[in-house]
Write a protein that binds this DNA or RNA. Sequence first.
DNA 1: GCGGGTAGCCTGTATATACAGGTCGGTCGC
DNA 2: GCGACCGACCTGTATATACAGGCTACCCGC
Lengths: 255, 255
Amino acid sequence: MTKAVKPVSGEARHYIRIKEQILADIAEGKLQPGDRVSSESELVAAFGVSRMTANRALRELMFEGVLKRSAGIGTFVSPKHLDVDLLQIRNIADEILERGHTHKAVVVKAGLMKADANVADALELTLGAEVMHSLIVHVENGQPIQVEERYVNPLVAPNYLSADFGRMTPHEYLTKVAPITAFEHIVQAVKPDRAIRKYLGLKNDHPCLRVFRRTWSGEAVVTCALLYYPGAQYRLEARSSKGPSKPVAILGEKQ
Amino acid sequence: MTKAVKPVSGEARHYIRIKEQILADIAEGKLQPGDRVSSESELVAAFGVSRMTANRALRELMFEGVLKRSAGIGTFVSPKHLDVDLLQIRNIADEILERGHTHKAVVVKAGLMKADANVADALELTLGAEVMHSLIVHVENGQPIQVEERYVNPLVAPNYLSADFGRMTPHEYLTKVAPITAFEHIVQAVKPDRAIRKYLGLKNDHPCLRVFRRTWSGEAVVTCALLYYPGAQYRLEARSSKGPSKPVAILGEKQ
DNA sequence: GCGGGTAGCCTGTATATACAGGTCGGTCGC
DNA sequence: GCGACCGACCTGTATATACAGGCTACCCGC
């Protein structure tokens, strides 16, 4: 009696197809922030799936922060912002790929340098010790979204500079070499200097979030990095584990 | 024919109960990283739910990074769990007093209002419900350092407005009335509007950190607040609990 | 004109059922 | 004895169905 729709085999699963379609519509601008997305029953008609499948696609996109839903009203595209979790460290390339977007890393600089007082302090090395340094701009769908200035402890990851950052982000490489056992995040709002503005394509008065991150592997500091994010588009999130799941609009923002 | 289990009404939904049970077992150490978690069918038997419900609980915990699943093998507690402890909520008055400075709170507004869509959503109340609202400027040694705009759930703290904010900060009062069991922080860098600039005594292009904070006591949202800090002067810190203690200068800053 | 009730749409949750496919251990046949 | 098959168990995906409850727009009666 049931339609016995085979759950496809090699191809994408139904709920993934729905998610991809919605992400594509957003990427192409067919769906703008605030726009209403097809309701579950409309998706049922359009894709020939059951409501549970449509529900799953929409629910997952909501958890991923792409959509906002409210019972009785409908489902809407969230205002565009990128979320970063303050209490865990994620690979920026993964985050971007999960949103269905393309990621590219542009290596501006990579080389050796002598640690000045701040760097030596941060990496717990002696003044003047040789450290590795890289400056990378991360680009999502052609738009720069993060400047990453990184200093790496050569005692922990001596071959850092020979990694191919086009294929593997510094973070990815370093966690492979030395798994993270502890981290520290310090967040500030800053006026970006001219170089950062240039890399991110920002206007003069656009505020930036600056995250100073250090990671440890065992007793040793693996690396420290300054991460610059273009201001209001970015939100850093921190939740206690029992905390909520559903994204909520920040007060004072439209919609 | 079907069992017609009512989806509960006031209480937690079934899949939430399962998630809470698993999280509790992990918290109490009954489940260690790497341990096998009950399979879906075992949960079906234990909780009297359908497999789809058990599946949802486990799948969400997987997305949240708590569990790892693999078909044919089973479900296991994730190894990582870099402790999510810090970025704790502190009372700004305590921080200031610890620095040996004086703290003063200036109450700009305090009163009742009807919740608009965003406030209702944030406090998990219905649209138009009456909520309490306060706008306070915190002053350290005569200099304003935080604007705190707060909305309070009257079901949790009905007497909020009669508290004396000169003697006890809103945060202090609220934690006394309803201990915090969960929180959420969302951090952004923004250009402050004129009112905020005025309260903080800032120039036009000075960036601000804006922290949107919600706190829970049990299932209820106690309060949500927008906190504005003058940009580079303020740092928000988050550390894994195994992390470092010694403060370090942020790279790029003098001294 | 205006206020209240209701029908209809939407999401949230839950159930029972089904098939696909991975993993593992035991058994049977050579 | 050893290898191949098979069945048990697990997750992954999908369907049809049901009821609860929020929200809106429309209509009807006063």
